[in-house]
Design a protein around this nucleic acid. Structure first.
Lengths: 206, 206, 206, 206
DNA sequence: TATGAATGAGATTTCATTCAT
DNA sequence: GATGAATGAAATCTCATTCAT
C-alpha cells in the first residue's frame, strides 16, 4: 500500500518544514536578517545543513517559507479578531492593541523580514502575486474599512489608502520600538492611535 | 599663498566625497543595502576601490556619510517649509505633500538606509545621539505639533506620539511605493492623509 | 555504534590538522613568516582555502597550532634525552648535539616562528602563559641546570640566567646556519659549545 | 660652477637619507617590522611619501639602508671600546656590558631588523656580501678573540665559532628582554655572561 | 624636486551550495 | 534521506608603488 507511506512521508516533510520555520524565526529574532545563515538555522533546528537543503531548494526558498508562515500567523490572528466583533470601529481598536502588543514582542523579527523582503528582488516579485498571505492580510484590513463605510461607521474614503496608512502606522511604530527610538508605552500608543482614527475617520452625526 | 592650494584641496575632497555619496546612493537605490559593496561604489564613481578608502576610512564611514547627507537634505527641505508658513496646519499639509513627493522619488534609498540602520549596531548607536540630523528632523516635526497645540490649532495630545505616527505614515507610504505595492497617486494620497489628520487632530470649535 | 563514526571523525580531523600543520610548516620554511598566507597553505595541503577555515578558526589559530606542535616535538626530544642520562653534564652535552642537529634541519621554520611570536601581540600573550610547551622546554632546561648544581656537577649560579644563555646559543647558532652565515660543521660547533660550558674561554695558568 | 651645486645636492641627499633613517628606526621601534609602512616613515620624517621614493627606489632599499646604518652605529661603538682597552678580556667584558645595555634600550628595533632580514630573501643575499658593516662587526669580534688567543689571554679555539656563540648570546638575551620573557637585570646578566666566559659552568674541585 | 591622490594586487574571512558517504 | 566536509565566489581592507601637477 504505497499511499500510507506516501502520506507518512508528507507528514514528515511538513513537520520538518515547520521545525525549520521555527528555527529560522528564532535565528532571525536573535541575529537579525544578515545573521540568518544556513548553519545557524540547521544548528537551531538540530539537523545538518544538508538536511535543510533537502527540504528547501536554497536560502530564498527557506526565507520565503518563513515570511509566508509569519503572514499566515498574522492572518489567523486578524481573522479571529474580526470574527469576534460586530462593530468595525471596535474591531479596528482591538487590532491596534493586539498587533502593537504582538509586534512589540517580536519587533526584531518583523524588522528582519522587512529586510529580507526588500533585499531580494526575487522575493519582492513573488510577494506581489495577489494571493500571498501578506496581501490577504492587507485585503482583510481594507475590507474591514470598506465594510465600516457601508455600515456608516466610517466616513467615505478610499479603503485602500486607509489600509496603507493603517499598516504603515503599525509597522512604523513597531520598528521604532525595536530600534529603541520610542519610549512611549504600548497602551498609551494604542489609545493615541485609536483616538486619532476615531476623530478622524468616524462620521460625526449631528 | 598656501591658503589657495589648501582651499583647492578641500574643494577636491568635498567634490570627491560628494561624488562617492552620489555613487553610493545610486548603488543603494539599484541593489539595496546588502548590494552596497565597495567595489560597486568604486565602479559607479569611476574610481578604484583604494580611492574610496582614501576618502572614507571604512564602509561604515561611507554609509554614515550617506545617511547623514540624506537627513540633511530632508532637514533643509523641512526648514524651508516651516519658515514659509504661519499656520501649523498649513505647514503640516505642505510637509505631507512635499515629503511624499520627494521620498517617492528616492524610495529605495530611504528603505536601504533603514536597513543599514537596523543592521549595524554601531550606526544605530551613533544615530541615537541627539544632534544627528535624523533626530533633528524628528524634533522639528514634534515641535511643529507642539506649537500647533499651543496656538490652539491642534487639540491636546502627546506631541512625541504624534510625531512618531506622522513619520511612520510618511515612511511607510514611501516604502510601499518603492516596493510597488501601492498604486495610488501622490496627490490623492496627500489629500487623504491630510484629511485624516485634519479631522483627527484639529480642534473643532462650536 | 556511534562511537566508531565518532572516533573516525576525530581521526580524520586529526589527520587534516596534521596535514595542514605540515603544509604550514613547509610554507613557512620556504617563504618565511610573512609569506605564510592562507592561500599558500591551502594550496600546499592540496585543499581549498575554505577547508583550512573549517579546521582553524583563523590564521592565528593555525599559527598557534604550528608553534605548539613544534614545541611539543622539542619537548619530546628533550625529555628522552634527559631521561636516558644520569650525569647532568652528559645530558647537556647530548642536548647540544641533538638540538643543533635537529634545528639545523628546520632552521627556517624556527626562525619564522620567532617572527610570528614577536609580531602578533596575541600570540605573545598566550605564549607567556606558563604551561605552554615552549615554556615547559625552558623550564626543563632550567631544572636540569639546577639539578646539576645540587649534585655538585655545576658551580653555583642563577639557573634561569643559565637557561637563557643556553637557549640563546642554540637558537642563535641555528639562525646563523639557516641564514647561511656560518659554515662550521655541526659536530665542531657542538664540541666547541660544550668545551665553552666546561671551561670558559680564559686560559688558566698553572 | 657646477661643482658647488653638485656638492650641495649631495649634501641634501645625505641629510634626507639620514632623516629617513631616523624616521624608519623610530617607526620600527614603535610598531615593529610589520608596522613599518612607507606612510608612517614619510609622516614621521615630515615629508611626503613620494619624497621617500625619490631617495629610495623601493621599500627594500630603505630597509637595507636602515640595517646598514644600524650596523654602522654598532661598528662605531665597538671600535671605540676596542681601541680604549689593552686587555682583550677587559674589552670583551665591556662589550658585554655596553651592548646588553644598548640593545636592551633598543630591543624592539633589533628584533624588527632581524625580521626584516629573514623576511626578504634579497636582503639576506645582499647581507652575505663580505664587506657589509654587519659582517665587519662580526669580524671585529672574531679578531678580538683571535688576538686574545695570540696574547695568551684566551685558550686556543676557533675564533669564528667563538664569535658566533658570543653574538648569539647578546642577540638572544636582547630578544628575551624585548619579548618580556626575562626579568633578570642588565648588570646581573652581564656579570653572569662574563663569569661564564671566564670559567665555564663546571665545578672544578681541587 | 616635492607632493599625495590614485591605483590594484593581494590578504583575511564568510557562507551558500554541492556531493560523496 | 541524512550528513557535514569541501568548495570557491565574494566582501572588506591594506599598502607598496606610480605619476600628474
Amino acid at each position: 500500500m504505497p499511499k500510507l507511506s506516501e502520506r507518512k512521508k508528507q507528514m514528515v516533510e511538513k513537520m520538518m518544514r515547520g521545525a525549520l520555520y521555527q528555527a529560522a524565526s528564532s535565528v532571525m529574532s536573535e541575529y537579525g536578517w544578515p545573521g540568518l545563515t544556513m548553519d545557524r538555522v540547521a544548528e537551531e533546528a538540530g539537523v545538518s545543513k544538508g538536511t535543510v537543503y533537502n527540504y528547501f531548494k536554497d536560502k530564498k526558498e527557506l526565507v520565503w517559507f518563513v515570511i509566508t508562515n509569519l503572514a499566515l500567523d498574522i492572518e489567523e490572528r486578524l481573522k479571529n479578531i474580526i470574527e469576534s466583533h460586530q462593530s468595525c470601529a471596535e474591531t479596528v481598536k482591538e487590532i491596534v492593541m493586539k498587533e502593537l502588543q504582538g509586534r512589540r514582542e517580536h519587533g526584531h523579527l518583523a524588522t528582519a523580514i522587512i529586510h529580507a523582503f526588500h533585499e531580494e528582488p526575487e522575493l519582492r516579485k513573488r510577494m506581489l502575486s495577489s494571493d500571498h498571505p501578506f496581501n490577504r492580510v492587507d485585503k482583510m484590513i481594507e475590507d474591514l474599512f470598506a465594510r465600516g463605510m457601508e455600515k456608516g461607521e466610517f466616513r467615505k474614503m478610499d479603503p485602500k489608502a486607509m489600509q496603507s496608512v493603517f499598516s504603515a502606522i503599525l509597522m512604523g511604530i513597531s520598528r521604532r520600538w525595536a530600534g529603541g527610538r520610542l519610549d512611549i508605552g504600548t497602551d498609551e500608543m494604542s489609545d493615541f492611535i485609536i483616538s486619532l482614527l476615531n476623530e478622524g475617520i468616524v462620521r460625526k452625526d449631528n
